[in-house]
């Protein structure tokens, strides 16, 4: 398995990278961790005339908290997320997510920015970022712009990133006290994409009822699916097996999976329901400090 020919570029500044991408337009691809891109090129399912490696640009790998916002550099490795105490403390759902992506070796190179920018509904971060109400920072020829995550996933393998733009940062509002989140994935084996997976991020009020719920699904449609009805249903309800079950039912209604080797449509939809319920239950346990 050998990729077709391409030219490799290794800019050392963001400006240089953006300039290269703008110059080469459609023929250029950003090489971040390369763990999706290089297999595609090797299988010759994708082509690129130019690869712009952002791996030598300093300052793109970080996880920090600033002003109530968790900021993650676009090129931050999945393994760094997995090992980050800050992530475990502030957004355990993100830790859940990072540790089920592909396998540990892939996670040593794969990046969170790449996971989002690839626009693959089978990737795991999109659902989690939806549940967390994240924002994505894109840096392009005209500088930085902030894209709310709900506007980011446009279609299958298509995102709101414009030609010449690089995903440079993810911003996650640090969840308030009495919050919890969880990501639950069903996979056939380690290294597989999700048959289905559910992300749930909840905040509970003083009376123990939901004040906020973010719910989203992986591999449940051509784009990551936010389960708006399920979210709305939960607000004001108290956590219970019944409320989890109803939210699961509403989440399943929101998805439109396609059949593949992982399962038929009805199975995947049911798994969306079951996993949403489980993710909510785990999220509430964390919110309640259990």
């Amino acid at each position: 398995m050998i990729p077709s020919q391409f030219d490799y570029h290794a800019p050392t500044t963001l400006a240089e990278a953006v300039a290269l991408l703008s110059r080469f337009g459609e023929g250029a691809k950003v090489l971040s961790g390369g763990q999706s891109l290089l297999p595609l090129l090797k299988l010759r399912l994708g082509t690129a005339e130019h690869l712009v490696d952002i791996g030598r640009i300093p300052g793109l790998e970080y996880i920090k908290e600033e002003g109530g916002v968790l900021k993650i550099g676009g090129r931050t490795r999945e393994s760094a997320l997995e090992q980050s105490e800050l992530v475990k403390a502030k957004a355990p759902i993100l830790h859940d997510t990072a540790r089920v992506i592909a396998d540990p070796l892939v996670r040593n190179l794969a990046t969170v920015g790449g996971n989002l920018a690839h626009g693959d509904p089978g990737n795991d971060h999109p659902a989690t970022m939806l549940a967390l109400d994240a924002q994505v920072v894109a840096t392009g020829p005209s500088g930085e712009r902030v894209i709310p995550i709900d506007q980011f996933f446009v279609g299958l393998f298509t995102t709101a990133l414009r030609p010449g733009e690089i995903l440079t940062e993810i911003r996650i509002p640090v969840p308030p006290p009495h919050s919890g989140g969880a990501y639950v994935k069903l996979e056939r084996k380690v290294g597989d994409y999700a048959t289905a997976a559910a992300a749930a991020q909840v905040a509970l009020g003083p009376n123990g009822a939901f004040v906020k719920a973010g719910i989203a699904l992986t591999n449940a449609g051509p784009t990551p699916v936010r389960c708006t009805k399920a979210q709305q249903f939960l607000v004001g309800k108290r956590p219970s097996d019944n409320s989890f079950a109803e939210a699961g039912r509403l989440a399943a209604e929101a998805c439109s999976p396609s059949a593949d080797r992982r399962g038929a449509v009805d199975y995947k939809r049911e798994m969306a329901r079951v996993l949403t319920g489980r993710a909510l239950k785990a999220a509430v346990q964390r919110a309640e400090g259990r």
Partner: peptide, 16 residues
Amino acid sequence: IQGGSFMDYLVPTAME
């Protein structure tokens, strides 16, 4: 053929 790569031909890892 359906599943003609290690993507879909599921050789078990140490976890399974």
